[in-house]
Amino acid sequence: MMETGIVICGQCGERGLADTQFCGVCGAFLKWDGEQADEKPVPQGTQPDVVQPAEQRAPQRQGLQVPDEPPPLNPGDLICGNCGLGNVPSRKFCGRCGASLAQAETVAVPWWRRFFPARKAKELEAGTRPRRRRGSGEARRRVGRVVRRTIAVAVVVAGVLYATVPPLRSAVNTQAVGLKNEVAGIFVTQYAPVRPTKVIATAANPDHGANLVSDNASNTYWSASGDREQALVLTFDRAVDLRKAIVRIGIGADFQSAHRPQKLHLVYSTGKTYDLSLVDIPDAQEVTLENSAGSTSVELHVVALHRSLQGNDVAISEIELFEAKS
């Protein structure tokens, strides 16, 4: 029995859909008028009855029924160069006009199909029907248009209110600034100053004691002989985690009159160390500190100098320390 919705090519026996005009393998026309008589088997050993030849009537072709709108093209389809119909890749001849598909153009497969292949249609058991999707495409498009228009109207109304109502504008600006600060707090580290409670040095010149490096004044400075390695010890009233420092080296008013530290070797109370290099400039320079978590004091050893041609002392105007806010 012939399957429902299937036609069988009388020339090559290929099966095709009922709405196909031409065979996809041999290109033979499938829509002929008239019905073929069923063949009956002849018993062995007998001769079939003689039948007078009847006048043969040439079958007539029906006119091709071309739909008003061609079916949509799918990725991988072969586009007929004669009528433009999309054919499945397995066909060799167009299902509408019978033209050869040997030189047919193939519908391009979208790039994203390489990563997200098309889902295979679910095979249903015999006697079951596919479930209909709720709603139609047109209904969904109408809902989408309504939503877009509603959003557009809301944006326009909000803009008008923001421009014409000062209290509302002030409230919105306040909220925006607050949100910006919150975001900045998440992605940008905030710092707090750390003040030492005690500062001592291995040596210091008169009127230029060690405490002057942390008095928040750039016109004062600590100085000592530059003939040997000098060190400063800063002590805190609690455990700290230093992350940043602002350093002013030399004597601000007369920068070239003394040696300036080129490299500092930091030794924390926890036993950890960190080396710090400084640029030879009179301006304040910001540097990063590491390895200080849990320290209650830090030693700053001056292990290298930017040399002066005018004096023999080494000087530091100011050191400001900072830790990350918790």
Rank of each mutant, 00 (worst) to 15 (best):
I8R: 15
G81H: 05
D313W: 13
Q44S: 14
G86Y: 09
V157M: 12
G24S: 03
A284C: 07
V165N: 14
E323L: 00
G226I: 05
E105Q: 15
L168S: 03
R248D: 10
A108L: 12
V302A: 12
T202G: 12
N219R: 11
L278F: 05
S317F: 06
V194E: 01
A217M: 08
P70G: 12
R119E: 15
S223P: 09
P166K: 08
L232T: 02
T273H: 03
P53F: 01
T235W: 04
G311F: 07
P72N: 12
V279P: 00
T296N: 10
R195E: 10
G63I: 03
V267I: 13
D68T: 15
T150G: 15
A184W: 04
V287L: 12
Q310D: 14
S326K: 14
V183G: 00
M2N: 14
P193M: 01
S214K: 01
R238M: 02
E105T: 13
R91H: 11
G250R: 02
R15L: 09
F115N: 09
G95L: 10
P193D: 00
V109W: 08
F322R: 01
A139F: 06
H301M: 10
A118C: 09
L179V: 06
S214P: 00
F255W: 11
D207N: 13
C80Y: 03
A315D: 08
L85W: 13
V7W: 06
V50G: 08
E229I: 12
R131P: 02
P117V: 08
E55G: 03
A37M: 11
R145I: 09
D275K: 06
E138M: 10
I316S: 06
E182M: 08
S136Q: 04
N216R: 09
S170K: 15
A201F: 02
P41I: 13
I8T: 14
T106N: 03
V50S: 10
S269T: 06
S257R: 09
V177T: 13
G271A: 01
P75W: 10
E123L: 14
A54V: 12
D38K: 15
V165H: 15
G63S: 11
E3H: 12
A102F: 01
F116R: 09
V298M: 06
F255P: 06
P89G: 06
G76M: 07
D241I: 02
K272D: 06
V160Q: 03
A171C: 03
S170H: 15
I6P: 01
C94D: 03
P261A: 04
N211A: 15
V42T: 10
K120L: 14
K92Y: 06
T4S: 14
Q62D: 07
G76L: 07
F22L: 06
E138W: 10
S136G: 11
H208S: 08
V233F: 05
T46K: 13
P167H: 05
I8Q: 14
Y274V: 01
N216E: 12
K272Q: 09
V298E: 02
F22G: 03
T128F: 11
F116S: 09
G209D: 06
V146F: 10
N219P: 02
E39A: 14
R113E: 10
K198Y: 02
C23V: 07
H208W: 05
S277G: 04
Q60T: 12
G178W: 08
V177K: 10
S308R: 07
E286P: 00
R129G: 00
